[in-house]
Design a protein around this nucleic acid. Structure first.
Lengths: 133, 133
DNA sequence: CCTACTGTATTGGTAACCTAATACACTGGT
DNA sequence: ACCAGTGTATTAGGTTACCAATACAGTAGG
């Protein structure tokens, strides 16, 4: 399956981009429970990235209960893809919102500006993932 | 004057937190053109940070035309605090919005969720800065 | 068995950041 | 003239994160 893109020239480390990309695909249903996930080396080659970097993302997702591993066989989306607890989800969302609001204010954008831009980006992110499916 | 807070245990480097904090105070009018800014050593002591780190932030703001320096006297908010060009402002806003939308989707938040949280954060950021004034 | 594929562990290099200690040139007030 | 306060420059050290290269361990299938 064709996966998302990663951008090496970005602040966020690659392994986090991979981790969040996977979470997005699951949230959007592009990746369903029980589906097989590209092997570490395969995805690494596809993204032009070191296998270790992919492995780190998979490791974290496995620890979080999102992925399930059968050694020697491969990695799969967990049957019960552990969603983050409601409180955790809210915390991460709040942190991200704080960062976004902070930069918005720093460039002199109004709340309406920020909201409008958020709408555009949200739609774009969703569309981008649907396209890859 | 009492300035903002910085959080050393955060992804964003301290010098950037200072830089953005200053920009926010200007955008909100807490810091007006011609106002004097705490000296490098003074702010460093106030934030419990190395003077070099503050100097780096001031340097960038001066290069950007936001601050003006009179050698031996101190640093001031530029009389014509160079706002970023409209295109640049939009670009940074768009990038930030993309990051925010990305994590929002990854935690399964709807656009309404993200918008609501953005509203809260925006208000909070503004209030936080007003309080310090 | 042996090969080819999984995920995992270890190690090393590189870059960024922060801190620290000095030193310099300039200005204002005493 | 002196001194205290500015911003600035330089050098060094230590920590941390990221990425790459390599070797290891397990499983499936011919």
């Amino acid at each position: 399956m064709n996966m998302f893109d990663i951008n090496p020239s970005q602040a966020a480390p690659i392994w986090r981009q991979i981790e969040e990309g996977m979470r997005r695909m699951i949230s959007l249903g592009t990746l369903a429970p029980g589906d097989t996930v590209p092997s570490v080396r395969e995805l690494a080659q596809q993204l032009r990235v070191n296998p270790n970097t992919v492995a780190r993302a998979y490791q974290r997702l496995t620890d979080a209960g999102v992925f399930a591993v059968r050694r020697g066989e491969g990695t799969f989306v967990s049957e019960e893809p552990t969603q983050l607890k409601k409180s955790e989800r809210h915390d991460t969302l709040r942190e991200a919102a704080t960062r976004y609001a902070g930069t918005a204010v720093s460039v002199g954008a109004t709340l309406d500006d920020a909201s409008r831009e958020l709408g555009n980006s949200y739609e774009r992110v969703v569309r981008e993932h649907r396209r890859k499916a």
